[in-house]
Write a protein that binds this DNA or RNA. Structure first.
Length: 811
DNA sequence: CAGTGAGCGAGCTTCCGCTTGACTT
């Protein structure tokens, strides 16, 4: 018989807490929420006071059954989910599902997983806060209604399977609007003047240092004119000013700042960061990783102080308490920190080590002293100009927290030079120039979002929660609204004028501009959906919408507002907008007519078709004539494509001629330009242009590919030519039709028999079918159908092996 | 994996926030 059953949300937390509590306590976990709205009828009886219809999701049934058993035999059940809206609701759902009565139930909360905090919580139990639960319920229902009423409108008016929601639609809006800012941006150039000066001190020692003019010039002529003046000028130090400055460490990590720094310093995407953090948490190395709090427990403050003092000395320690800035923070946990500050490094995979190291440094630095600097600014005057040069230098007098950690920023600032030490300049010192350069610099458009930068923006706006940042970013990519892409930049010329000695010389240099890596690009469908939603659902798309909802939810949580009332006043006008939109809005095509094809006179247009954006040639005079289509290439935008670009799309595929009595054609596919011959594909190497490659060149490529393919093939079995042993990227493997099979370790592929292969297929099939759950494959087939409707049909009827797999699993 | 771009109109898709595995390539 269990005396006390404590239920928390996470199993890792349960393990830790069990250690703090005595023998009389059994600690277990609910794995988050145990109930959710059913999907049927949106899970809400709207005309029955928004009565929610809750079910236990299939993947939670086992958990709930276990909890029921444990609870039945327990004297007292302690509901210890987080102290926020969601946590309160979890406790309430548990109470309902487990049939707990008030007498033997206690609700407790703690903000940190430390022994004193847990003991204090046990000593101060309270009741479930009904207002808070209702606030969560209102949040849940509102999100369901928004998502499940707008998404079907998109299916009808734009394309099936699309989605909309309070959080994701705003995230997409941010990406779309940023892209349009970039598209409409015209860079302006200015000439920046930087001089290298010579200074000789009293001992005759020579120094060179850099200084920048306090003026930039719009044109090359003006820059040249200035250099002419500079040539005949003498230079003198006008003033030297020294100012103390200090730098303060950043607070310890929250989910969002961890994601940002891991993105900048380690180049991890947000879901990768969270996956690694989860492993660190589960192995007890860090505190909880989904948090919006920057607070550290007293225990953490104490132990970090000890570590800092013993490693760096007393003067490096400074205890700091941080306050959360983000408006929406619920602060149910501590900041993300090492569980044991004494462990500067840990065992684990390289990425676990790297992320832990980042967390350790950031948390330690947050409890360290300010860095003290001295900034020096020297002004240099010209004898025959009003302009002045400025040189600045920075010296660290005391490094403080900089000893362990420097925060990065998103702006990769290459316009600013690293400020170092200046020579011992003094007022009135005379200088000569080594050279003075006028360099043309272009203004830059706003930067595209990285995943982490988008999370930061959403957090600032109070949209989304730590547990949903990474999933939201994945969702908008899965739905095809955004793509994380690497794009190569374009070359751009810029001018440099250099005054050296008595001579001014000019030069044209090139730089790469617009190169992007791992940034989020909106797709064409995202732009269409965004504009549609902005037009018909401006309220949902408003950046303030979530903030307003939050205010009302807070009122409900304080008992100052009725939750049904709140939903009524939101839903009624919202729902009539939905109906009105279904009734009155046009189907979204994104069609633009670009002009006429000069060769044939046919009309050139672009639009969104079923399989994506296309350009179209239409004979307007002949309705019978079939229009000709060409897909837009990656990166081309429906809303920006020009007539010339559209016409170029129709130049492919090109038929080059015949080889071995079969036509050779060139086109651009999903993986770039390719040659097609005899139903075989050969990717074009980079130095070939699909528009200019000749038949002879193509034939060479085809032959080369044949040799490579022959090397790839180890053996074809006579018994069944579908069975082939091939050399792949990861060594030999068995290919049967379209399916690939791994070979058992240590087998020599060349000696394998047909029977060996059959065995592999049979065994692997058995493994696959028995190991899988019922739901996963069903989901997979659905996905395949939507992305590739025509080919999927073909394969299900032909592929016997996979066909039987599917049917047996569905049962 | 790289042919489509539309028609007999089946049945499906979708939200946000809590939490972990169990999957494949």
């Amino acid at each position: 018989m269990i005396k006390n059953l404590v239920i928390v949300e996470s199993p890792a937390k349960a393990k830790t807490i069990e250690g703090f509590l005595g023998k009389d306590f059994t600690v277990t976990s609910s794995y988050g929420h145990v109930r959710d709205l059913e999907k049927k009828n949106n899970g809400v009886e709207i005309d029955n006071g928004f009565n929610p219809l809750y079910i236990i999701p299939a993947d939670k049934k086992a958990v709930v059954n276990d909890l029921k058993k444990l609870a039945k035999g327990a004297e007292t059940v302690w509901l210890a989910s987080d102290e926020d809206r969601e946590g309160e609701a979890i406790s309430w759902h548990l109470k309902e599902v487990l049939g707990l009565n008030a007498e033997r139930t206690r609700r407790i909360v703690f903000h940190e997983i430390t022994k004193p905090a847990i003991t204090a919580a046990i000593e101060n139990p309270r009741y479930i806060d009904t207002n808070l639960v209702e606030s969560q319920q209102a949040r849940r229902i509102l999100d369901r209604l928004v998502g499940f009423e707008i998404s079907p409108v998109l299916w009808r008016k734009v394309r099936p399977s699309l989605s909309a929601g309070r959080v994701q639609s705003v995230a997409v809006r941010l990406i779309v609007e940023r892209e349009r800012e970039i598209d409409s941006f015209t860079p302006e150039s200015k000439f920046r003047i930087v001089g290298i000066f010579n200074f000789t001190d009293d001992d005759g020692k020579n120094y060179k240092f850099k200084a920048e003019l306090n003026e930039k010039f719009d044109t090359e002529e003006e820059a040249y004119k200035f250099l002419e003046i500079a040539k005949d000028s003498s230079y003198k130090i006008d003033s030297v000013e020294k100012k103390p400055a200090k730098k303060t460490p950043a607070p310890p990590f929250t989910t969002s700042t961890l994601q940002q720094e891991a993105s900048r310093k380690l180049r991890y995407g947000v879901s990768r960061t969270m996956l690694i953090a989860q492993r660190l948490y589960e192995s007890g190395k860090i505190t909880y990783m989904r948090t919006d709090s920057v607070n550290l427990s007293d225990l953490a403050l104490g132990s970090s102080k000890n570590v800092i003092k013993s490693s760096f000395g007393d003067k490096y320690s400074k205890t700091r308490k941080y306050k959360t800035k983000s408006a929406n923070a619920q602060e149910a946990h501590e900041a993300i920190r090492p569980t044991y500050f004494e462990h500067e490094t840990i065992d684990g995979t390289p990425e676990e080590k790297a992320l832990y190291n980042l967390i350790w440094k950031r948390a330690i630095a947050s409890q360290m002293a300010d860095a003290e600097l001295e900034k020096t600014t020297a002004k240099i005057s010209l004898s025959n100009s009003e302009y002045k040069f400025t040189a600045s230098g920075e010296v660290i007098k005391f490094d403080g927290f900089l000893k362990v950690y420097i925060e990065s920023t998103d702006e990769d600032d290459n316009t600013k030079d690293a400020e170092g030490l200046l020579p011992p300049l003094y007022n009135g010192a005379l200088l000569t120039y080594d050279n003075i350069a006028a360099t043309e610099r272009f203004s830059r458009p706003p930067a595209r979002y990285t995943e982490a930068a988008l999370v930061k923006k959403l957090e600032e706006m109070g949209i989304g929660r730590p547990s949903t940042y990474a999933p939201t970013i994945s969702t908008i990519q899965k739905r095809g609204y955004a793509e994380k892409e690497e794009r190569i930049g374009k070359e751009r010329e810029y001018k440099v004028l250099v005054l050296s000695g008595r001579n001014i010389s000019g030069e044209v240099k090139t730089e790469i501009t617009g190169a992007e890596k791992g940034k989020l690009y909106p797709t064409n469908i995202a732009m269409l959906v965004n504009d549609f939603l902005l037009k018909y659902f401006p309220k949902i798309m408003d950046f303030q919408f979530t903030a307003e909802v939050e205010k009302e939810l807070d009122d409900i949580a304080r008992g100052e507002r009725n939750w049904v009332n709140m939903l009524e006043s939101f839903y009624r006008p919202f729902h009539s907008t939905v109906e009105d939109t279904i009734e009155n809005s046009e189907r979204v095509k994104g069609e633009r007519i670009l002009g006429d094809d000069p060769k044939t006179g046919r009309q050139v247009s672009v639009r969104m078709a079923r399989f994506g954006p296309v350009a179209q040639l239409t004979d307007i005079n002949d309705e019978e004539a079939k229009p000709q289509f060409a897909s837009l290439r990656t990166g081309q935008k429906l809303e920006l494509l020009t007539l010339e670009e559209a016409l170029e799309l129709f130049e492919l595929p090109r038929t080059l001629g015949n080889f071995e009595e079969k036509p050779v054609t060139v086109a651009i596919g999903r993986f770039g330009p390719y040659i097609k011959h005899d139903n075989k594909f050969t990717s074009l190497k980079k130095h070939f242009d699909p528009y200019t490659i000749t038949l002879d060149e193509a034939i060479v490529e085809i032959k080369e590919k044949r040799i490579k393919d022959a090397e790839k093939l180890i053996k074809v079995f006579e018994e069944n030519p579908d069975f082939q042993l091939q050399n792949g990227r990861w060594g030999p493997f068995l290919k049967v039709g379209k399916l690939n099979f791994k070979l058992p370790k240590g087998v020599n592929a060349t000696e394998m028999t047909y029977e060996d292969c059959l065995k592999i297929v049979e065994e692997s099939d058995k493994k696959v079918s028995s190991g899988k759950t019922k739901k996963a494959p069903a989901k997979k087939t659905a996905e395949k159908k939507t992305t590739k409707a025509p080919s999927a049909k073909k394969s299900t009827s032909k592929k016997t092996a996979s066909g039987t797999k599917k049917t047996t699993k569905k049962k």
